[in-house]
Design a protein around this nucleic acid. Structure first.
Lengths: 329, 329
DNA sequence: ATGAAAGCGCTAACAG
DNA sequence: CTGTTAGCGCTTTCAT
């Protein structure tokens, strides 16, 4: 790795002259600049990132903690963050909490050692469940800005980017009803997390008499759904997460329901599963990439001005109709 | 952010004493150590990562370039890398090439500024197609070690971790034949990439007379498969990538094929799609997490000894039977 | 227009 | 056992 010093020696000028020339300072004569630039190019000089960071006291890097990398929704958000960060000359370091509070804490601790200028995260399942916020407060005491995306903790005022879960869910119930489907079930495998709760509140605000199957994860979901479909009269189902959507669809087909004639299914969409389901699921599109982009922008704003008021961006969803839903309107 | 200097001042000792105490040096008396450790803990001292890196001339960070973050297979590899790296005290920086040569080059260039100690990557589709290796050679001239995973470039001797694509594919054809299925088709949407080519060679080594549908991406695949199934007599299909698998399954069901009675389907497995297909696809499991882990280990070995011979690790796949395949053996 | 010097926070060789 | 000093590679202030 070639350094400023080596360039300086070779040209018999001082290190500071080289440094200034490379940053196109007006202090340096055009001639000297040209000479220096030429050699730098020839030698393939790249400034040592670590040294620059140490000197500038900033890393031009953001840290991201996602709860689960196997969830396509989060990888899409990641993509949004990464591409947006790149545009502004920021790098992205990614860690995964695996929905564990402990892993999340460790990530934040690591990020706190000066590795990043700011943090983007969706709190883990555990963090939300136990409403743990100490580790976030510590971040704040260290003056490391952070932004929540997708999930958040009510008790903690902060910057966040979320979707309008409540309304999105409510509207689907209204849609079913307007289409004459009144035996409605709601299925969720994300009972604990904030988005799951909001969606549930949304459906209940539309109709108090829904059949609800709710679990903390997709384990056993298959059996519960089968039981529901066998015992109850149902002609419309809203699934609050994509895995529930696909599982419900498959169970319904196994039980020989005619879809969408006898049974309409709509699902919140987190990824790629619904796209390749058969028949293709009608989904509530969450625009994950945009969530990522907006989150990064929010962080960037705060990086530039730490005194800003905390901001919450709520993104709208869109209902994308496919073959799993009857639509007579 | 609290520094060594501040701790030193507060305790009226020198910076180096504090530094040594915190690294538990035998040079420091037990008493002084205790005092220093206590204050460090109280003040929540964390060594500044950037400074340590600059001093040590290493970053304890590896850079990863994946072609596509929407492919579950790569996120699994990522998970393997990240968790293994973490165990060895390494951080992971992730970039995405989007299958573009240019993006890949930019990532490597960025990594070359001293941000990482080594690099793990799967070359982009374009890189493989045009057999571009200049940017890898430049890495080598800068003495930054790198390891390929999943995909590789024949022309470049290097460390790599791959699966036994050739044999895995061949064996499935043999399996079909032993089960009396002789009208076999092979479907692929990964024509360009090394794994796709190897798998194709594998099936051809088993049987030269297969019906092959091969595309560069999944665009138009649907139509091509439909055409095949309508025109040709087929009772067994091997899909060389998961997307082909799921698409083929759905088309076959749309055309009312009885699966697996009339048609058996086996697919290479990259992710989560096949798991939630209906009926569930029989898959060739590629143990992605292990690919990630082994890749990191290979890189770690080279980081420790740059003189090692280049190594190629070939991981075995396993055939996981599900309902999409008839198995009479 | 150029250079000398200080310093970011840390480690480590060397001196005492 | 503790401290002094130098230096990683860079930027920036101040002097010339």
């Amino acid at each position: 790795m070639i350094t400023l010093k080596q360039l300086a020696q070779e040209l018999k000028v001082s290190v500071s002259t080289v440094s200034k020339a490379l940053s196109d300072s007006h202090e340096i004569s055009a001639e000297t600049k040209k000479k220096i630039l030429a050699l730098a190019k020839e030698r393939n000089y790249i400034p040592n990132n670590t040294a620059v960071n140490l000197r500038r006291k900033q890393t031009k890097t953001v840290g991201v903690v996602i709860p689960n990398i196997f969830n396509h929704f989060y990888t899409k958000i990641l993509h949004g963050i990464e591409s947006e960060a790149k545009k502004s000359g920021y790098k992205t370091i990614i860690t995964i909490s695996n929905e564990k509070l402990q892993d999340e804490k460790e990530s934040l601790e690591y990020f706190s050692n000066g590795s990043v200028d700011g943090i983007l995260l969706a709190p883990s399942d555990e963090t939300e469940k136990y409403k743990k916020i100490d580790h976030f407060l510590e971040l704040r005491s260290k003056e490391i800005p952070f932004v929540f995306f997708d999930r958040f903790i009510d008790e903690l005022p902060c910057d966040k980017v979320i979707i309008d879960d409540f309304d999105s869910a409510k509207n689907v119930i209204h849609f079913f009803e307007k289409n004459g489907m009144n035996d409605i079930a709601v299925i969720s495998s994300i009972k604990n997390i904030s988005t799951g709760k909001l969606r549930k509140q949304g459906v209940l605000s539309a109709n108090k008499n829904l059949k609800i199957v709710e679990l903390e994860s997709e384990i056993n979901l298959q059996d519960k759904v089968e039981e529901l479909l066998k015992k109850e009269k149902v002609n419309a189902i809203l699934c609050l997460d994509e895995l529930s959507g696909v599982i419900t669809l498959n169970i319904a087909r196994k039980l020989k329901f005619k879809i969408p004639k006898e049974l309409s299914i709509v699902s919140f969409n987190q990824g790629i599963l619904s796209k390749y389901s058969f028949p293709r699921l009608t989904t509530i599109n969450q625009h994950a990439t945009q969530i990522g982009r907006e989150s990064f922008q929010l962080l960037l704003n705060r990086l530039q001005d730490s005194k800003l008021e905390y901001q919450t961006k709520v993104l709208k969803t869109s209902l994308k109709f496919h073959k799993s839903t009857k639509n007579t309107l």
